[in-house]
Structure formats: structure tokens, C-alpha cells
Design a protein around this nucleic acid. Structure first.
Lengths: 337, 337
DNA sequence: ACATCAAGGGAAACCGTTTCCCCGCGCAAT
DNA sequence: ATTGCGCGGGGAAACGGTTTCCCTTGATGT
């Protein structure tokens, strides 16, 4: 005989025989079906609570064709951004009685499609978080896991709600802020080459160049780590720019520390911006001017789009762009006279 | 008819009829049962891959009585400690083909038991992460969700593997380190009163007092936030102690900043220790001496204990105590002459 | 050539629940 | 008094697999 080996759990049949009814009736009572005689319903409920009966979710899922679970695939759970999204998603989903299954692709691109497919078969829908796969792969994959919400990517192959943070817009606003403070020579300390969000920042900066043709803007190789920022100090100090846009807060903090060691003062000698508004960005010395991406809202909104698709079974939802909110703090100031 | 209404997915029956065999044979092939003729097996595999057939996990779970999924219940997903544990757990479980379902109790104690029970019914086991419920509740709950791993709590009611971080030991070592540097007057800036780990630190410090009767150690009210640390600056500066043990790194960073504003130098005037070794503890100025709790190892080990229980169906495992590792950095130094 | 045996595959039971179908019963209407 | 009808509840199918049981088939040994 298949299945359970030793621990006999209490099932619907036990409740049925105790209440002296068929298991169909027990099911009706448990699901609040009102076509059951009040006396019988009470008897069933008494038996159920006596036996501490709880319907088996697996059997339920099989019969109902739904699992009340959604999956989320992230490239790397140690990334605070994805942690925040996961958290927002989990809390929002829980409010509607849904659970979240997580899958971490560990930045292995070839795993993403497999994990997503796996998750989709187990769950009622999938949230694909900043997938690293190619556009073609994504186009091909998207239709196969239909109740789908994309984060930081879009696809044309099938109408899919997308939530994308507008990094380009954010970095443009930061650059404009520096210009407003009088800076004429800017530099962008880039992120990792393969990073999609770095590419978006670069695109935003190209637009910025077009809008402000008289502003000088150069690109310096950087990275996304504290150490990368730290080690860029010399290059930054000698590049001639007075306003520095750094890829993210972590690298900006590294740079801040490196500049401080060299006796370069921020913002008196150099203005500096980060990106992400991580929790400690406000506690650096000086506090970091940065762009806050509304990541916790993202998770919440992702669930709302997911729920809409699950309920209506086919929803048309547009791509939502999120402009980051600029946080003006102490690391930027008027250009030196 | 229950279940799926419109989207007809490919099932085992489709593969069976295409390969011209019974669905039993398809199942045997899919599960690597070797008692199938090689030719037939090949035919089945061809049909399966042609139809892109993947066994439905829900049906499989029902028949097998296992879901290849474990649940984790955390009090608050925004806490970096739990994020790290979740990550370690998820990665380790994935290596063995298991997925992780998350449940966030949002610090609501009454929800924990419900969430844990729910999770257990859906999964093959549950990891209960620093549950806030009372000892009595835990004793009562533990037996009902048997493949169970506890983190930062223990229970007597049933043999359950526990992983607990020895905060008391860690703070003792930090205190001893200060003594070794010549400090004779110490102060502990406490955490939240309701925090269990704060209580453990206090217990450790009582032991320390017993071991070093000639050392003066006072308790100052603090907190677990940056601002709480910042606002304690005056109290710390005027308390007369030269070695300050702070509840955690976040508060220590706040204190560091507050002291710096008052012109008090660390470690020349005052030595300071944190707790947790969060990623940025090494980047403060000066870098923070702190105690590192091996949280990513915790998740990994939690999975190992879980797997052992699932496989042997009943494993006796002891409580594991984790002494934090002391990280000596720049925020502590010899007492002022 | 016949008996015995091993292997392999099909039929059916089973996992735990929901839902469809239909029957029996009570009540109102003719 | 009989029929029509509505309603409540029981039986069975369905969900999508896995596994046990048993029968068939082909091979081998005497």
C-alpha cells in the first residue's frame, strides 16, 4: 500500500464515522456549505474539534486544483533588495491566506528556468525576481508559468504584469541635483558590467548628457562592494570631477571611507551620492544623499498583481515603473568656490 | 467534477497512451524502477519528453505522503538574523532537493502555533525560529509537529534538536577581553527588556561578575536601535566606565556616532564592543570589536538535523550550543593611562 | 516436451479531499 | 390520496500520481 507508513493521522473518514455521517457531509460542513442540517452540522463540528481534525492540505489541493501557495524565484537571497521584496510579498500574501515558497537560483542562470517551472507546478503562481536569463529565454518561459509577475524585467510574449524600478530616472535626478548645486564636472563610478541595473543607470545618464550638453560627465570603473568603492578613491580624487555618482550605497560608503583617509572632505571638497537608501545610509558621516527604491512596496504590489491574476484567471496588467525617491542628505553640497 | 476546469495539462495518462503502455509503467520509468524493459523505458521517456511531461507534485505528494518541502516559522523576516538563517536553510535544503515554505508571524505570539501547525501539515517538517511563545505552549506544541528543529529555544517534552546561540558566553568573552586590556570599570548598555537574548547576555554578565569580583560592572538602559545607542551617549560618557559593552552592533554604531559628536575618542578615551558582527561592523570608524554569531552556519546545520529526522524518521539529537566568535577590531584598546 | 521459474507489465487499490449525481423523504398542491 | 417538488445527504467519481498484487510471457532445465 502506498503512502503513509506508521503515524496514522486523523482524516475525514474518522470524523465522518464519529458523527455518523458520510465523509461528503463532513466536507460540506468544513467548507461552510449551508445545505446541511444545523443539527448534523453541529454534530460534525463537535466530532471534528474533538478529534482535532484539520483537512489535509495536499488532498485538498489535489481536489481543488490549487495550493494556496505562490513561488518566488530570486537570484540571491543574501541581497537585501530581494529580502525586502520577499518579505513584502510574504506578508501581503499571508493576509489573503497564501504562503510563499522560495527558490534561490544562486545567480546560476541555467537554474532559473528549472526552478521557476518546478515552483509553478507546486504553486498557483510565480514571482520572478530580476531574472538573469536572456530575453529570448524569458519570452519562451513566461507563457509556461502563467500566473506570473515579473520584477525588474518585462516580456512581450504574453501579457504579464511587471514591476520595474526606474534606475535610469533615479540617477538622472541625482545628477540633476548635483548640477543644481553648481557642479559642472561629474563622474559616475559604475557597477558590475553584467548588472542590468547598471546598464539602466548608464542609459539614464546618456539621457542626462543629452539634456545637459555643457556638463562634463565621465565614467570610472567601480563595482558594487565596499572594497571596490574604497579602492576607487585615488581614481576619483584625481579625475577632476567635483560631483560623484556612485553605483550604490555600499560602494559609496567604501569610497567615503577611502576619501576620508586621504584627507578629502565630503561634501566640502567633493559631493557624493549613493543609490538604494540602505538602512545605514543615513548614519554614515556625512549621511549619504541617495535614491530610495520602494522595495517593500514592491513585494506588496507584486502580490496584488498576482492575486488579480489568480482570481480573474487572466488579467491584463501594464508594466509599472517606479521612480526612486531622492533622499537629500549631507554628502552633497554646493561646489567649492 | 472537481479540480481543473479549463486548462488541460498533460498527465501520466497522456504519456501512457502515447507510449502504448499503462500509466503504472510510466510511473515506474519516471521513478527509475529498473524492472522495466529497456526498450519500453526508452519509448516512455521519448513520449514523456515529447509531451514535456512532468509529474504533478501534488498528486505525487498525496501518494507518497511527503512533500519534499519544509517550513520555517520566523518572528520577523526583516530581522537580518532570520534572513541569514532562512538563506542558509534554503540553500542547504535545495542541495537535497527540498524547498522551503516561509511563515512570518510578525511577532504576534498567538499566531505562531497556528502558523507552525499549518506549515507542518503542508510540509515534511518545520524549523521553528526563536519562537516568542511561552515555554508551556512550546512544550505542548512541539510533539504535534514532530520532524522539528528549534533555533534559540529548547524543549523537554520530546527529543528535539535545538540550535542555540550562546549569547551569554559571547558577552562574557567580550568583557574578559576588556579586562585583559586593563579596564576595571565596565558598563553594559542593555537591549530591550523583553528580548530573550538580552536576558541571556545579562545572565552571562552575572557569571562574569562572579568570576571577576574586583571588576566594577554597571547596567545602563539602552535599546536595539541606532537612535537608542546615540541617545545613550551622555549616560555612557558620564558613568565613569572605560569599557562599554553594547547590546548589539546597531546600537553600538549609534553610540559611536554620539560619542564622536561629543569629542570622545574611541578607543583612546573609551573602548566599545558590539554584538552580531553585521556586515558593516568592520567599516565603522574605528571598526567595531564584536561577537560574530555563525548565523549562516545555523541554517545549514538546521537542515542537516531536519534531514536526519526525516530520513531515520526519529533521530535523537542533542542541543547544540554555539559560542560566538570574538572579532577583535579597532574599537577596543588599552585603558587610558 | 513438460514443468518450473523469473521478469515484466497491466489492473486495481490507495492517498484525502471535493463535488456531481441521484435517491429518499417530507411537505404542499391538486 | 397521489403527485410534484425541493432539499438534504449518501455513494461514487474525480483529482494525478504510486505501489501492490497477480497474471502473462519467455526462458531454462531435465
Amino acid at each position: 500500500m502506498p503512502g503513509r507508513r506508521n503515524t496514522r493521522r486523523v482524516g475525514i473518514a474518522d470524523v465522518a464515522s464519529m458523527a455518523g455521517v458520510s465523509h461528503a457531509t463532513v466536507s460540506r460542513v468544513m467548507n461552510g456549505n449551508t445545505t446541511v442540517d444545523a443539527n448534523i452540522a453541529a454534530r460534525v463540528r463537535a466530532a471534528a474539534s474533538e478529534l482535532k481534525y484539520k483537512p489535509n492540505p495536499v488532498g485538498r489541493s489535489l481536489a481543488l486544483g490549487k495550493t494556496d501557495t505562490i513561488g518566488i524565484v530570486v537570484p540571491d537571497l543574501s541581497n537585501p533588495t530581494f529580502q525586502a521584496i520577499l518579505r513584502g510579498l510574504s506578508i501581503a500574501a499571508a493576509r489573503d491566506g497564501y504562503r510563499v515558497l522560495i527558490a534561490d537560483s544562486s545567480e546560476v542562470r541555467s537554474e532559473e528556468a528549472i526552478l521557476a517551472g518546478e515552483a509553478r507546478r507546486r504553486c498557483d503562481g510565480v514571482v520572478l525576481c530580476a531574472p538573469r536569463m536572456s530575453d529570448e529565454e524569458l519570452e519562451e518561459l513566461a507563457p509556461t508559468l502563467h500566473p506570473l509577475v515579473l520584477i525588474n524585467r518585462t516580456t512581450e510574449s504574453v501579457p504579464t504584469p511587471s514591476l520595474v524600478v526606474d534606475y535610469g530616472q533615479g540617477i538622472q535626478e541625482l545628477a540633476a541635483h548635483l548640477v543644481q548645486l553648481g557642479h559642472r564636472k561629474l563622474a559616475y563610478l559604475t557597477g558590475p558590467d553584467r548588472s542590468a541595473s547598471n546598464v539602466q543607470r548608464l542609459r539614464g545618464l546618456e539621457k542626462f548628457k543629452a539634456e545637459y550638453p555643457d556638463i562634463e560627465l565621465q565614467y570610472l570603473p567601480g563595482g558594487n562592494t565596499y572594497d571596490a568603492g574604497f579602492e576607487s578613491s585615488d581614481a576619483v580624487a584625481s579625475c577632476g570631477a567635483t560631483g560623484i555618482l556612485v553605483f550604490n550605497d555600499v560602494a559609496a560608503m567604501g569610497l567615503l571611507s577611502g576619501l576620508s583617509e586621504r584627507g578629502i572632505r565630503v561634501p566640502e571638497d567633493l559631493s557624493l551620492t549613493g543609490f538604494d537608501d540602505m538602512p545605514f545610509a543615513r548614519y554614515t558621516m556625512p549621511p549619504l544623499t541617495t535614491a530610495a527604491v520602494p522595495i517593500s512596496d514592491l513585494g506588496d504590489l507584486a502580490w496584488r498583481h498576482m492575486r488579480e491574476q489568480i482570481q480573474t484567471n487572466d488579467a491584463v496588467s501594464p508594466t509599472n515603473y517606479f521612480p526612486p525617491r531622492i533622499e537629500l542628505r549631507g554628502s552633497t553640497g554646493p561646489v567649492k568656490a
